[in-house]
């Protein structure tokens, strides 16, 4: 295939993915907005004032970046894992398999679709957060680069999940038992400085901690972790997941007999 044809194939997958999640917007775009709004109301408005300031900021302002990023993480991941698994289940993945579209383009197409949903939900949640918090921006570059890289990383993770999944339950196991606990323990609602030393150490094993702190730095200029460490971890995980997915896809894991 020529580069121009590869570009057309890539855009086709991306368009198909975006059409899919916008067609079912009641299931893909509205629920995260409702969930995050509830967090804002309960943790921000009701409980937040009793907690007081966190790292020198109102509790509501402190948790907003984490909640935005949480919605990006869960939606980027869920979009790719469920869409790719559905394609396997309905066998519509064969439409792409029989075509000359390279594996890397299939991977990038699905991942871009997942990132699009994650970022779109992130934007909507950010708009909702304006009603509850005074959003300040400390570093636009850090904010945008971290949200993009995080969406990329979790879309890649969702693709791996989609490749391995053999039944619908397999698509929800990782989000329920791995992603949600790691996100909640990743410092959305607290600074790890509040934890005992041992648990601070344990928290450093959680990759989501690095993303949330870097993203919070973009808004508030505070972070428990150095920015360079955060970028290194996110990029390293993304590269590793990309290579794993590409290898599995080339071998036809989960999609070829």
């Amino acid at each position: 295939m020529k580069w121009s044809q590869i570009w057309v194939a890539y855009l086709t997958i991306v368009r198909k993915e975006i059409t899919r999640f916008t067609r079912i917007w009641q299931q893909t775009l509205i629920p995260p907005v409702i969930t995050t709004s509830l967090y804002f109301v309960i943790f921000g408005n009701l409980i937040g004032p009793r907690i007081g300031d966190m790292e020198g900021y109102r509790y509501m302002d402190f948790i907003v970046p984490g909640l935005i990023l949480m919605s990006v993480i869960t939606n980027s991941y869920a979009n790719v894992s469920s869409s790719f698994f559905s394609s396997k289940f309905q066998r519509s993945i064969e439409e792409i398999q029989v075509s000359p579209t390279p594996s890397s383009v299939i991977l990038l197409g699905y991942v871009t679709g997942g990132m699009a949903r994650g970022l779109l939900v992130g934007v909507v949640v950010t708009i909702v957060s304006i009603f509850f918090s005074k959003l300040s921006v400390h570093n636009v570059f850090v904010m945008f680069s971290i949200i993009l890289l995080t969406a990329l990383l979790f879309a890649l993770g969702g693709f791996t999940n989609g490749l391995f999944a053999r039944k619908f339950d397999d698509v929800s196991i990782i989000p329920t038992f791995v992603l949600t606990p790691l996100t909640y323990l990743g410092g959305i609602f607290y600074s790890i400085k509040l934890l005992p030393e041992f648990w601070q150490g344990v928290s450093h094993v959680n990759p989501i901690l690095y993303m949330i702190n870097a993203f919070r730095y973009g808004f508030l200029g505070i972070s428990d972790i150095s920015l360079s460490t955060s970028y290194t971890i996110i990029i390293a995980f993304s590269v590793v997941l990309f290579l794993i997915n590409l290898r599995l896809l080339n071998k036809g894991y989960g999609i070829r007999s």
Binding site: M1, K2, S4, Q5, I6, V8, A9, L11, T12, I13, R15, K16, T19, R20, R23, S86, S87, Q90, R91, S92, E94, E95, I96, V98, S99, P100, T101
Partner: peptide, 27 residues
């Protein structure tokens, strides 16, 4: 290829299905 079993997304329209397939071939 025209496979034995239906293997397109049943939520898409015929136009989308054929157009997408063309896209995968870079048309």
């Amino acid at each position: 290829i025209v496979p034995q079993e239906i293997n397109f997304s049943v939520f898409e329209t015929p136009m989308q299905i054929v157009m997408n397939q063309a896209g995968y071939y870079g048309i």
